[in-house]
Design a protein around this nucleic acid. Structure first.
Lengths: 171, 171
DNA sequence: GCACGATGTTTCGCATACGAAATATTCGAC
DNA sequence: GTCGAATATTTCGTATGCGAAACATCGTGC
């Protein structure tokens, strides 16, 4: 699934930094490529990318509420409702109202869904993960450390005036 | 714009490697977060994420064919047609048939679009880029080197049997 | 000049994707 | 017990996003 590129595509930046652009480009590349591969793999089984993800999740967890499912695939409930609708229509999954809490719906694989899940042997992420596994221990350690830094930075700068169109301060 | 997570969300992997999962998670996090921020920024100006990207691109390049526009934002032509349709409806952009090659459509900002572009001062990627700028030179160099490795690996493993799982029996 | 493949754009049908509002149910305060 | 806030899910409207097919135009070979 190809995606509109995030603002990285915008060329007019305060200070042109080819390395940074290159890194951003790579992140986008890896992300979009992994989705494209998932989609291609899924289509061999008559599924869409998200549907494949859902099937493999349900194969592992047996039973998930719609909320926890949407949390796991990082989508809104309303989005997942649609995905499950279509999968239910295809007879791949079942919806069961929880008896304990009648607000909750448990999603599970049907017979057909289970069979299909078993047929799909290759983990969709294999290529991407393979790339990471191929790194040396040192590289892996460095990458993890830097990624954590990035994440920490972004996390702390989000709640703030990040979206207030305020001019940048230090650099 | 939140996205269905790529297959990284699938827990059953051949060899559980928490560092690798963590790295994948972070890449996804950075990507989705950058899109969320763009979207939030855009909505302050009555735009969607992709529309903001298009406006800033057109502010820089003045004049882009629909094809080159879709190339830059990494989307299909058919997707961009829709985006431009809606922006034209809002009076933000103009479509002009090229006289040199009458197949080509040049997209450009209207007066209104130019004014809006000027109002949006902050580069949407600033937070994400800011995180990268905050890294030490050594970190940046390491990250760039590793990212290139990853990209090279993925690139060379894509054309191959990457997508050759067991064939499904048609529906 | 004219057939014809290549190229640029749009159209169509479908599947995400989101946020806001509607609906159903639970749980706590009282 | 009952009201009201909180939680889980669905519904609705709109905007991407894709691939295949339709359409228009270009360029080449002849």
């Amino acid at each position: 699934m190809r995606n509109i590129v995030p603002p990285s595509a915008l060329p007019p930046d305060p200070e042109p930094r080819p390395e940074i652009d290159s890194i951003v480009e790579t992140i986008i590349y890896l992300y979009t490529e992994s989705r494209r591969l998932t989609k291609g793999l899924a289509s061999q089984f008559g599924l869409t990318g998200p549907q494949l993800t859902v099937i493999k999740l349900l194969e592992t967890f047996e039973n998930l509420s719609l909320s926890s499912l949407s949390e796991r695939i990082r989508a809104q409930n309303s989005t997942v409702t649609g995905i499950i609708d279509r999968m239910e229509r295809e007879g791949l999954v079942r919806r069961d109202r929880s008896t304990a809490d009648r607000r909750v719906v448990h999603i599970s694989l049907s017979e057909k869904g289970q069979k299909l899940a078993k047929q799909i042997q290759v983990e969709p992420m294999e290529i991407f993960r393979g790339a990471l596994v191929g790194l040396s221990h040192a590289d892996l350690r460095d990458l993890l450390r830097i990624m954590n830094k990035l994440q920490r930075y972004v996390r702390t700068h989000i709640a703030d005036g990040a979206m207030d169109a305020a001019p940048p301060e230090d650099t």
